[in-house]
Design a binder for these strands. Structure first.
Lengths: 243, 243
DNA sequence: TTAATAGTGTCTATAAGACAATATATA
DNA sequence: TATATATTGTCTTATAGACACTATTAA
C-alpha cells in the first residue's frame, strides 16, 4: 500500500460538482399541465448548471449545499444529490486538470423562490424549452436527470418529495403530469398509486380538501412503511415461487 | 471565472477508481445453475475490489484498463465502466484526502482466465457467498452492482455482452439464470427475449446448434437495430396516445 | 336544482404464468 | 425405435387502458 509521501507525489485533479436542480413549474394556461424545470445560471452564451469545486474536508452533499447557498442564494436545504455521471476528459478544462461530477437534486418550488438563476422548463424529450444550449455537456446531464426522475415518477407517488403532505390524488396527479410531461388517466393513476398511499384518518384533523368546487377529496400521505423496491409491482421473468 | 493560478491554490483530492468486475461462473453440479461473480483481490483480512488512483491525462476508462492490466494481469480489455457511487467522506482515508469513484464492469469469463484475484460468487441478496466482508464500503458496491445487472438482465437479452454470438435461447436462458440467480420458465423467457433477437439465416453458416442430444436449436444474435429504450415494453402510466 | 370534481364498476386487450402437445434431431 | 431437447399452443390470471356511472360537496 502507498505511504503518505507517495500519495502526495502524484498530481491530483480539481473536482467540480455540477448539479441539475430539478423542480416543477405551475401550469401557464387554465387547462394545460405544469412542467418539469431545471435551474440554469449564467447569461446567454454562457449558461451552465450551478456547480463549484469540492473543498477539502467537505462531502459532496455539503458542497451541494454550498452551491445552493452561495450561487443560488438558498439556505437550509436538505440535499440528497444523486450522482449521474463523471466528466473525465483530461483536456475538458484548458486551465487545469478538472474532473466534474454531475448530480441531480429535486427541490420543491417553495424552496426555489428567490433563487438566483432561471427555472427553465424541460420538454418531453429532455431538452430545454428555451434558449441556447448549455456549456460543456450540461444539456446531456439535464436530459439524463429528466429521464431518471420521470422513470421514478412512473412507479411511486412523489418519490422525491415535491409535494407537501397531506395531498389529494388530484394534486398528486397534477404533479406527476408536470414531471412526466404527459396528461395521465385518473383511474389508472389512482389504482397505481393508492397501494403506496396512506389515507389520513378523520382524527388527524382536516379530513377533506377542496379544489375548485366539487366533491371533496380524501387526503393521503406517502406510506413510509414500504420498501420502495417491495412497493413496485415486479412482473418480470421470475416464476411466482421465486417472489 | 477562476484563473489558472486560483485553481492551483485549492487543495485537491486524490481520486481513486474502484471496480466491481462482474462475470458468471459455470454451474458446479449437473442440475444446478451458474452464478454471478465478482473479482476480489487481496488476502483474507484485507479483501477489496480492484482499484487505483486516477493519473493525470487519463480518463476513467483508461484507468480501469490500467487496473485490469496491472492488478489483474489482463490486457486488451474494452472497458465501459458504469459509475455507481462516490465515496466522499473526507476522513475515509487517514493518509490523505481521497475520493473514490466506484464503478461496475461486466466481462465475459473468457477474458477473466488467468486474472489475479478470486471470482467470488454473489448470492441472490447481493452478498458475497464466501469469506469475510470487504474493506471500506465495497460490500455495498458489490450488492449495488449486482442489483443493477440483475435488473438489466430481466429486460433484455444479454445486454452486457457476456455471451459470444450466435447463441441459442437455451444458452441465453442459462446465462440469465446465472446472473439473476433464479431458475426461469423457458416459455416466458423465450417470449420476452425473442422480440429483441435476430434469428441467424441459414445462409449465414452453421444454422443449428446442439447441446446434449435432442432437437437442434435455432441460433440468434442480438438485435442492434433497436433502441434499448424502445425495445423494452413500456406498460406504465402513460395513455396509449402518448406512446 | 346545476356545476364540478371525486371515486368506483366494468369491459377489453395484453402479457405473464403455467402446463401440455408437437417437432426434430441423435443413438 | 427411444430419448432428449426445442418450439408452439392454449388456458388462466392479473392488470393496464378506457369509458361510463355514481357520489358528494358548493352555489
Amino acid at each position: 500500500m502507498l505511504e503518505k509521501d507517495d500519495l502526495a507525489r502524484f498530481p491530483r485533479p480539481n473536482v467540480a460538482v455540477d448539479i441539475a436542480v430539478l423542480s416543477v413549474l405551475p401550469r401557464q394556461l387554465p387547462h394545460a399541465i405544469g412542467s418539469l424545470a431545471v435551474l440554469i445560471e449564467g447569461e446567454p452564451g454562457g449558461r451552465t448548471l450551478p456547480g463549484r469545486f469540492l473543498r477539502e474536508g467537505q462531502t459532496i452533499s455539503e458542497c451541494v449545499v454550498d452551491v445552493l447557498s452561495v450561487k443560488a442564494g438558498m439556505s437550509n436545504v436538505r440535499a440528497e444529490p444523486r450522482l449521474l455521471r463523471a466528466f473525465d476528459d483530461p483536456r475538458r478544462d484548458p486551465r487545469a486538470w478538472t474532473l466534474s461530477l454531475a448530480h441531480s437534486l429535486t427541490l420543491p418550488p417553495r424552496l426555489l423562490r428567490g433563487a438566483r438563476g432561471a427555472l427553465v422548463p424541460i420538454a418531453a424529450g429532455g431538452q430545454l424549452v428555451l434558449g441556447e444550449p448549455l456549456l460543456f455537456d450540461h444539456d446531456a446531464i439535464v436530459s439524463e436527470a429528466a429521464a431518471a426522475i420521470r422513470e421514478r415518477y412512473e412507479r411511486l407517488p412523489d418519490p422525491d418529495g415535491l409535494l407537501e403532505e397531506p395531498f389529494t390524488i388530484a394534486e398528486l396527479k397534477s404533479l406527476h403530469e408536470a414531471v412526466i410531461g404527459v396528461r395521465l388517466l385518473k383511474d389508472t393513476f389512482r389504482r397505481r398509486m393508492e397501494p403506496n398511499l396512506r389515507p389520513l384518518a378523520e382524527a388527524d384533523g382536516a379530513r377533506l380538501l377542496r379544489s375548485d368546487g366539487g366533491r371533496p377529496a380524501q387526503v393521503f400521505t406517502r406510506r413510509a412503511d414500504l420498501e420502495p423496491e417491495a412497493a413496485i409491482q415486479r412482473r418480470g421473468l421470475l416464476p411466482r415461487a421465486a417472489r
